[in-house]
């Protein structure tokens, strides 16, 4: 884990300053990479867009009991901070773990029942009016 965050530090410095959705996707995949090494299967699809400061987006998703999911979010905008959290269909916080590190964030869920869950993504700090973000996930 420590090695991952050192790499994350270097990654952040080496990325170009101008943020694009492709860069955000690459960053989100980078954050997910540590879980791939733990046997999580990466879904070859991405979600993303741009958000204003403190603006949230909800992505509903059917998750299955028996699977273990990690959702990773990132932006490529330096000095921005993002957050991602998981709620069940009644609006109750349902994640079993989460972390936040600069412009990377992730949340894990082991659903107690199959059903619709809401992935809430948010930009919590940013030097710009709109911040490009991307989300990817893996499961095992």
């Amino acid at each position: 884990m420590r090695r991952f965050f050192i790499l994350l530090g270097f990654w952040a410095i080496l990325r170009p300053a101008q943020a694009t959705i492709d860069d955000a996707i690459t960053s989100a995949l980078f954050a997910l990479d540590q879980y791939t090494k733990q046997g999580y299967i990466v879904r070859d699809d991405q979600w993303g867009g741009d958000l204003g400061l403190r603006e949230q987006k909800a992505i509903p998703h059917t998750l299955f009991r028996g699977n273990d999911y990690w959702f990773c979010m990132a932006t490529d905008l330096e000095n921005a901070r993002v957050a991602i959290h998981l709620y069940d269909s009644r609006g109750k916080l349902a994640e079993s773990d989460s972390w936040q590190s600069g412009r990377f964030a992730a949340a894990r869920i082991l659903p107690l029942a199959t059903g619709t869950f809401y992935i809430i993504v948010e930009v919590t700090a940013s030097p710009k009016e709109r911040t490009t973000w991307a989300m990817v996930y893996g499961y095992k």
Binding site: M1, F5, L8, G9, A12, W47, E55, Q56, K57, A58, I59, P60, H61, T62, R81, A83, H85, Y87, S89, R90, G91, K92, L93, S98, W99, Q100, S101, G102, A105, T116, Y118, I120, T124
Partner: peptide, 26 residues
């Protein structure tokens, strides 16, 4: 940038009040 839990998320949110424009397709 020591990884941490970040700001504590609310334990409950009212999904019915979520703006439709901010709600993606399933």
């Amino acid at each position: 940038a020591i990884p941490g839990p970040g700001e504590a998320p609310p334990n409950h949110i009212d999904l019915s009040k979520f703006p439709a424009t901010q709600l993606d397709d399933i």
